[in-house]
Write a protein that binds this DNA or RNA. Structure first.
Lengths: 215, 215
DNA sequence: TAGGTATTCTTGCATGTGGAGGATAACTTG
DNA sequence: CAAGTTATCCTCCACATGCAAGAATACCTA
């Protein structure tokens, strides 16, 4: 098995990149067409113009590929989350929340296919954890006075941050429900409805210390 | 395919009940032992002492069985959610939240197996939607003055209730993260940490009408 | 560019999947 | 209890899965 390391690919064999990216693009395309459960490994390999056994050289199953394939998309989503940071005293704090929903809507087919009932538990868990981490570090950055950048330890080693898990789950819940209904409202409306709820959590957060992460 | 109707089984062939219940019990037992992805239909059928083809007479795949199998357990969880109702002015409002986490911990293996990264997107979605419905009807019951019982329409037909989806997702998020870490804190601690967050949403809910469900 | 290395491809296999058709057995109703 | 209904079981099938061993090929480095 050959796997590209998490970040900042320094020197990766061209063939590996080509194969992995082809497989990821193929999956993303296919998820837009039919349910994940109706997509076979052979389908993905064929769509990627790669042999079926090359698939197994990189990924154990479709879910592992899906997790890898959605990473770039997820990063985009997470990038639109600094709105959750209380220091962000923009004139319109819902702007980046709006970007979040817009981003979601833009790839609605993909997101619904991976996060919905026919999707992958692995992807759902991955997304939730990534957002949890983002919320966690944003909160710590605020609390610690914007000082040194936190050591980027995996969330698995950190204490259980209930508010972060709460917030992340809430965002995923709203997103999933919105996608399930076929995005019946504009990103602006969704942002306007969601923002007060997030704000209530923030104000509580900074106001009452008794509820923070458990040791 | 033979399927038992949703509620209040009036007259179901004894054989159907026996087979379905045996399959569900078998799955629940197996999920406690290994990952869902490592459980084959043949395994479940054998554990249930039922032929493999009888499985397909009732369920399309393992996820459909899992959804059916967890329904009873989910009902227990949802039963411990009236704490979310603002009218509930108990002396200790975290009591039923505590029951929620205790319930979760009691079947930790099952819940982690079905809701975690190796679980089933179908189950995750099902749980989230059930909780969303529960929160939604609880909120409406409160707002409408405890009057007539709402027509029990499926959540799919109702307008998108952002606060309900938000709350439900949040609970699932906290539960998933807690389970993932191996339930490192007592249900009492978890309830104490989670309650203020829920309360903040409630107070906002009753205080500011601008953010309700979208039409 | 030549050479060693690493990746991909081909082939093959044991097992799991999803389901159709028909025989057998169990249940419900009159 | 007898008759008819209905679920389960058995046997088959085509296809998908996950993986292994070795040949063929593309890549990186010197």
């Amino acid at each position: 098995m050959v796997t590209v390391g998490g970040s900042s690919t320094p020197k990766v064999d061209r063939r590996v990149r080509r194969t992995q990216e082809a497989l990821q693009r193929a999956l993303i395309r296919l998820v837009g067409e039919r349910d994940l459960s109706q997509i076979s490994i052979a389908d993905v390999a064929e769509q990627a113009e790669v042999s079926r056994s090359a698939f197994y050289d990189h990924y154990r199953d479709v879910h592992e590929l899906a997790e890898a394939a959605c990473t770039a998309v997820i990063d985009d989503l997470i990038a639109s989350l600094p709105a959750l940071d209380p220091v962000n005293t923009d004139e319109d704090p819902t702007r980046s929340l709006q970007a979040f929903f817009a981003n979601l809507a833009e790839h609605a087919g993909l997101h619904r296919g991976l996060l919905g009932p026919q999707g992958s538990a692995r992807v759902i868990d991955h997304v939730r954890r990534r957002i949890t981490e983002a919320v966690h570090t944003a909160a710590r950055r605020t609390a610690a006075g914007d000082g040194a950048p936190e050591s980027a330890a995996s969330a698995a080693d950190l204490p259980l941050d209930v508010p972060a898990a709460f917030t992340a789950g809430a965002l995923v819940g709203v997103a999933a429900e919105w996608l399930r209904r076929g995005c019946p409202h504009s990103p602006a409306e969704m942002a306007a409805s969601t923002w007060p709820l997030l704000a209530a959590l923030h104000h509580l957060d900074v106001g009452t210390p008794p509820c923070r992460q458990l040791p």
